[in-house]
Structure formats: structure tokens, C-alpha cells
Design a protein around this nucleic acid. Structure first.
Length: 410
DNA sequence: TCTGGGGTCCTAGGACCC
DNA sequence: TCTGGGGTCCTAGGACCC
């Protein structure tokens, strides 16, 4: 049996879901992003009783006059032609294409469609790895029909079933491993299938830019280019020793393998979260002293949200951390590990408060975040650890407070 | 005209223990 | 008094991904 791994990638997922609701937007410049619209939500709500596909175009809010700090999550092809790209600030995009229609991000809706397409995949091929809202890996190796035409037949079946049942298209790459499958799923986008074999390395993989390797981002790419390495083929010419010297033991060895299309990672059917966090960027930069009340309220809310997320998902954690971003976009983090697990909003708030004391607060802030890590399943906690008496927790926190305020000894 | 939110993984230094 | 190596945990920062 030949190992056959598929990567399935939904085509322009958010935009496609929105187009199912608003088919009248097809072909128009549309961006999807978060933030605040000045007036025009009212326009859409005026048509609340009208079928969505009958809402007239002039009722949709436009980018022009947009305020706030949101960024673009997805841009339609027509919007991209004006130079708009994802992760671009909405206010900048408004200057490039003021007439573009802007839709709010509707995660609840996308999650429903995500669940739907994953259920379809699972029914046909049960060995699936969740890779976020719009991507999965699937192990085709032992699935009936998974070997036919190198996986193309099964890929076609999944693709067709997803389209019939959701109206959404996707692209699939099938290859000997996850690394190559991920690259292959991009080859024939949208609504395409690509089958890659080991012997395609030379012809199909080596001509590609290094950036196409999942895990090589802008920084690594820049460093590679500074050594004259642009393509994966050029990367494959470098010796292991040189790569390790230049990029470190782990990354060097990984680059060496990746350039050769080698990837032994299994398809993981389940995963446990490492951390749970909430963060928010303020409408305007806030000052720790002057905006103390507002900041305090946001801080407490974030802690409550994290606590609720922990409970909902059934976890407790013992490392509490904060993240803040200054007005110059520099970020800092602080964390503190407790000697007990918790999901209690008050304990999180207190501990995060201690973290906050260890950070300079002269500069204005644009973002505040709260994180809980070192997670354990709440159900695995022994009884005496659950619902710890408040007094015990207080004394544990007081001890930490003492440590924190202890003068440095030299 | 600045740049979201929720994650994972890696590195590197220091503490502490054996 | 000096000098080790290995392992684990904690903390801070940063790259990267969806």
C-alpha cells in the first residue's frame, strides 16, 4: 500500500459562504473584515424582512467612510484587483477602493459550514486531521478507492459531495505526505485536484519558491534569499551541515528534509489545546493611568471570557499570562505559574493583575490580552484541587505577591 | 494611513536537582 | 574551591499559520 495523504482546502471560504447568502454580490469588489462601520448597518437592517438575495446593492455598506482598526480577512477577486489584500487595514483599503462592499466577519456562520464539510469528509474518509476552519488533511492510504489514480478518484468524490451538499467548492492535493499534499492543493485552485508523486519532486516542487513550503514565512524567506536561495531546488543543493550552521539544529534539519519532499508526520486525528486566550485591540490607544477605569473593565472582561472558555471546553490551567501591545506596536508578555490549576475568573484576574505589575506602563496601549496555559482536563483534576477553598487560593496568591515585591538581592 | 484574534512551536537563559 | 553534564520547569520573545 502506498502512503497517500490528501490536503483539502476550501476555496475563498468566507467569501464563498457570503456569496451563498448574497448571490447579488457575485463579481463585485467585496471585502470581509471586522471593526466598526459608521452608519450603514442601519441600511441592511432596513431590509430585515426581505429575502437576503433580494437586498438591493445600494443597501450594502461601502468601504468609503470606514473608521476603526479592523483588517481585511478576505477580499474578493474584484477587490484584489484594486490592490487590496488580506491583513490590510480597512481604512487603507477604503482609499484604494472606496466603493467596495464591506461585510462583517460572521464566524458563527462559517463554523456551521466548516462543521458541514468536515462531516462529509469524515463520512467518506474517516482519518481526518482538523487544520482550522477551512482546511483538513485526510489519510487516503487505506480508504477504499483511496489508491485509485493516486487518490484522484476519492478526491473527486469528496469534492463533488461537498459541492452538492453545501454549494461550496474546494481544492485537493494528494501526495505521499502532508508537506507535499499541502503544496499540491494550491496547484489547481479553485475547484481543482492535483496528484503528486515522489518522482514529481524535480519537475513540480523544485521550481517553486521556498515560501511555498508551509512553515517558511517572510523572515525565513528573507534569510534564505540573502544566501541566494530562492527556489526549493536551490535549497536542496545546500548541505545539511551548512543548513544546521545557518538555521540551527532543528530548523536546519527540517529545511534539509523539506527540500527533498520528506515529511514523516502522521495525520493526527485528535489534538489537545495548549493554551486558551482572549485579546482585544482598543478603538483608541489607552493610557494605564488616565484610562485606568476603562482599562480595568476590559481587563476584567477578558479574564471572565477566558474563564468561561475554559469551563465551556472543560479545561483548567495553571499558567496565567498577559500580553500587551504598545502604541508603537511592540508587544510584551508576562506569565506566572501557580501551584494549582484553575478556571476561576477571580483567580485569573488576580494573577494576571500581578503580571501586569511587572510591565512598564508609561506608554499608551493598543492591545491587551489574557492567556491561560499548562492546561489539564477539568475532569482529571482530583477533588481536592477542584473548587479549592478561597482562603487557600488567596494565601497562594499572597505568597506570589510577596515574591514579586521582594527586593532584588545581589 | 498602520498593522485582528486565536492559536502552535521554537529558542534561549536561568533555576534547580541529581 | 572549582568544575562537569543532563533533565525539567519556568519565563520572554518571536516566527508562523489559519
Amino acid at each position: 500500500m502506498i502512503r497517500r495523504i490528501a490536503h483539502l482546502d476550501m476555496d475563498a471560504f468566507y467569501a464563498s459562504v457570503e456569496l451563498l447568502r448574497y448571490p447579488q454580490l457575485k463579481g463585485l469588489p467585496v471585502v470581509i473584515g471586522g471593526g466598526r462601520r459608521p452608519v450603514d448597518d442601519a441600511l441592511l437592517t432596513r431590509h430585515i424582512n426581505r429575502p437576503l438575495d433580494k437586498i438591493p446593492l445600494d443597501a450594502f455598506p461601502r468601504l468609503a467612510g470606514y473608521t476603526g482598526r479592523g483588517v481585511i480577512t478576505t477580499a474578493s477577486y474584484a477587490a484584489r484587483q484594486s490592490g487590496i489584500g488580506s491583513a490590510m487595514g480597512l481604512m487603507k483599503a477604503a482609499r484604494l477602493c472606496p466603493q467596495a462592499i464591506v461585510l462583517p466577519v460572521d464566524f458563527a456562520q462559517y463554523r456551521q459550514f466548516s462543521r458541514a464539510f468536515k462531516d462529509i469528509v469524515l463520512e467518506i474518509a474517516p482519518l481526518m486531521e482538523d487544520r482550522g476552519i477551512d482546511e483538513v488533511f485526510i489519510d487516503f492510504t487505506e480508504v477504499p478507492g483511496g489508491q485509485r489514480e493516486g487518490g484522484r478518484v476519492l478526491a473527486r468524490l469528496i469534492q463533488k459531495t461537498i459541492f452538492q451538499q453545501t454549494g461550496l467548492t474546494c481544492s485537493v492535493g494528494v501526495a505521499p505526505n502532508k508537506l507535499l499534499a499541502k503544496m499540491a492543493s494550491e496547484f489547481n485552485k479553485p475547484n481543482g485536484i492535483a496528484v503528486v508523486w515522489e518522482q514529481d519532486l524535480h519537475g513540480k516542487i523544485w521550481p517553486l519558491a521556498c515560501r511555498k513550503i508551509n512553515g517558511i514565512g517572510p523572515k525565513a524567506d528573507e534569510k534564505l534569499q540573502s544566501h541566494g536561495i530562492r527556489t526549493i531546488g536551490e535549497l536542496a543543493l545546500r548541505e545539511l551541515d551548512w543548513l544546521i550552521e545557518t538555521f540551527g539544529q532543528k530548523t536546519g534539519a527540517w529545511l534539509f528534509d523539506a527540500a527533498r519532499g520528506i515529511d514523516l508526520r502522521p495525520v493526527e486525528l485528535t489534538s489537545e489545546p495548549v493554551s486558551i486566550s482572549r485579546e482585544t485591540t482598543f478603538d483608541r490607544d489607552l493610557h494605564a493611568v488616565r484610562d485606568k477605569i476603562e482599562l480595568g473593565a476590559i481587563f476584567t472582561r477578558l479574564c471572565a471570557q477566558v474563564a468561561e472558555d475554559l469551563s465551556t471546553k472543560g479545561y483548567v490551567g495553571k499558567t496565567i499570562g498577559i500580553k500587551l501591545r504598545y502604541d508603537n506596536f511592540k508587544s510584551v508578555t508576562r506569565d506566572q505559574t501557580l501551584n494549582f490549576y484553575t478556571s476561576d475568573a477571580k483567580v485569573i484576574r488576580q494573577t494576571a493583575g500581578l503580571c501586569l505589575k511587572r510591565v512598564p506602563l508609561q506608554q499608551r496601549l493598543r492591545l491587551l490580552g489574557v492567556r491561560v496555559a499548562s492546561l489539564a482536563a477539568a475532569a482529571d483534576q482530583p477533588e481536592y484541587m477542584r473548587n479549592r477553598p478561597a482562603a487557600l487560593i488567596d494565601s497562594a496568591l499572597a505568597a506570589i505577591d510577596l515574591e514579586a515585591s521582594e527586593p532584588q538581592l545581589f
